[in-house]
């Protein structure tokens, strides 16, 4: 079964990070939220594996307490 990769896996991390921020340039907060949501859905479908998705959801929520 596939597991969530949390060790470095992106060849040029600074390039990716810059592109991620760039993707939001000129957007309102609401538009950015929409772009982020679309990004999450696209990546989730690419991953597909339910276990990996669950692990990613859990890791994203870690240390973020309910308001």
């Amino acid at each position: 079964m596939a597991t969530l990769v949390t060790d470095p896996n992106i060849a040029a991390p600074d390039d990716f990070y810059e592109a991620l921020i760039e993707a939001h340039r000129g957007l309102t907060d609401a538009q950015s939220a929409l772009v982020n949501a679309k990004l999450v859905l696209l990546l989730a479908n690419h991953i597909g594996d339910a276990g990996v998705l669950q692990a990613a959801l859990a890791a994203a929520r870690e240390d973020v307490a309910s308001a």
Partner: peptide
């Protein structure tokens, strides 16, 4: 609000991408 955002994201993606139609 976030649930609404994801809903709108699904609908926006569904126009172009088959995977989103299933959602």
């Amino acid at each position: 609000a976030v649930s609404r955002t994801f809903r709108d994201a699904v609908l926006a993606l569904a126009r172009r991408h088959p995977f989103a139609r299933r959602l």
